[in-house]
Every structure is written in C-alpha cells, then in structure tokens.
C-alpha cells in the first residue's frame, strides 16, 4: 500500500486522530506520546512542527509551539525522532508553509519519506496555491491532506474531488481550540463532499471531550483531537503520558462503539 492508501485504510472504522505538538515539552516526551497514543486506539497521529507564528492556532497550541521552540526543537530533530519510532499507524506532519518552504520543499518532502512520515497538513497552503508543493509530494508519494471550512461553500466540490487520504473538515470559524459547542453545519459540509466524492471526512477544530467526539463521529468518518490533548501536555509536562493515555482511550473507545 502506498501512503495515500495506507491513510485511507485507517478509516475502515471511525478513526481517532490525535494531534500533539512535536517537542512539547521535549522530543523524548513526544516519542513516548506517539507510542502511547498508538497503543491507546489512535488510527493516525498528527505531529505539529512548532512555528513562530501559527496564525491558525488558538492560544493552547500557540503556547505549545512556544514551549517547543524555546526547548530547542527543530524540524531536523523531529525527523530524527520519528525515524526512531516504531508504530504501525501512519504519522502525519502538520505545519505552516514557511517551515517547509524555508527548509527547502524538496528536501523537506524527502526527509518526510525517509523518516517514515505518510502525509502533510499545511493549514496556510490553500488548494489554490498547493501546486508548487504537490509537485514534490506527488513525486515522493506523500499525501497532501486538503482542508475545507464552514465558509468553503462552492469550493468544496473541487477540493473534495482532488483530496487524497482523507479530507480535513474544519468544524468552526476561527482558530484551533476547545469549544463548548461546535457549529451545526458539519452535516452539510460532509453532505456536500459526499455528492462528489467518497473520500473519508475527519472533523477537527474544537473537539474537547469524549462526548463531543462521539457526537462528531456520527456525522464524520474520523475525529481530530488537538488542543484538548495539548492542554494535558501543558498541565503535566514530562509527566503527561498516563493522563494523555487515559484521555485518548476514552475517546478511542467511545467513537468506535
């Protein structure tokens, strides 16, 4: 199976996709977290490469990026760490475009493949601008995950048809972060996708607990949980593993029921 098929195959049941910021508070903790999440029912893992100016993030992940960067985390160290991880589930990297572009897109993509990364999510690289990166990801067989938002409207068919692996459905306006209530148009977004494509839809932005995750999983094929996990990492630092494990298990169990 190539990377795109491998990612897609994880949606044979409702998928749980946790996000953690690489290097928060250090890469050894990130390595342990990847193993723990894989053992706790995660189907895919998103690792954020910390960026100085994460404009799509709310305060929780922004603070994690600052902790990781001040701890000396770099993309080279993240590649090195991922190389040493032995998990069966696909690993995705989430980062802004400049850390890719500034590093050299071709070299970045090569290093992704060499370290066992299956796909990339780049929130500030919209569909219209992605060709210059896609040139390299196509060549290397790396999945470039597309995103749609509640405001996408007429853009959805074009984006959905061209998506690979799965489609990241941004649940709400604004930035990442837990929300007590998630906007109601997920069903409409997924419906618009279904009209043109059978690509799996995973919902992210705002999912804060198991109850919400369960609710979202009724409408979508997968649930992405970021800030809620990063909050636990912020609270417990290096000692976060058992707490993240407990939280991840609760989500994985409930959405797969």
């Amino acid at each position: 199976m190539n990377n795109i098929e491998k990612i897609r195959a994880t949606f044979s049941h409702k998928a749980f996709i946790p996000f953690i910021t690489g290097g928060d508070p250090d890469l050894e903790t990130t390595r342990k977290l990847i193993n723990t999440l894989a053992e706790s029912g995660a189907d895919l893992i998103e690792i954020g490469i910390p960026f100085s100016d994460p404009v799509a993030e709310g305060p929780v992940i922004e603070a994690a990026d600052e902790r990781a960067l001040s701890g000396g985390c770099t993309v080279d160290k993240i590649f090195e760490m991922i190389k040493g991880v032995d998990v069966k589930i696909p690993i995705l990297l989430m980062t802004y475009y400049n850390p890719i572009f500034g590093y050299g897109s071709e070299r970045f993509v090569e290093n992704c493949v060499n370290s066992g990364v299956s796909g990339l999510i780049v929130p500030d690289l919209p569909f219209d601008e992605r060709e210059e990166l896609k040139l390299y990801t196509d060549r290397a067989g790396l999945a470039l995950i597309s995103l749609i938002a509640p405001t996408s409207g007429g853009r959805i068919p074009v984006i959905a048809k061209a998506s690979e692996g799965f489609l990241y459905c941004v649940s709400s306006l604004g930035v990442t972060g837990t929300r007590s209530k998630i906007g109601g148009n997920i069903t409409e977004m997924v419906k618009a996708v279904r009209e043109v494509s059978d690509i799996p839809c995973a919902v992210g932005f705002g999912v804060s607990d198991a109850v919400q995750a369960k609710e979202m999983s009724k409408f979508a094929d997968g649930v992405i949980v970021g800030s809620a996990i990063v909050k636990i990492c912020a609270k417990y630092g290096r000692d976060c593993i058992p707490y993240v494990e407990k939280f991840a298990k609760s989500i994985a169990e409930i959405i797969k029921l």
Binding site: V55, A56, Y97, P123, D124, L125, P126, F127, D128, E129, E131, L147, I148, A149, P150, T151, S152, G153, R155, V158, I159, V170, L173, G174
Partner: peptide
C-alpha cells in the same frame, strides 16, 4: 482554481481555507 495576485514570483494568497472566500 487559479493563483491570483502575483508580482513576479511574489504575492499570492497563503491563508487558511476558512478565510479564502472572504478574500
């Protein structure tokens, strides 16, 4: 969808999907 707003190699619109229809 096409790329818009380039001055030579510079410009474009590199923003989250949420903002695309607004711009």
């Amino acid at each position: 969808m096409d790329k818009y707003g380039y001055f030579g190699e510079f410009g474009g619109r590199f923003i989250p999907e949420t903002l695309m229809n607004a711009v």
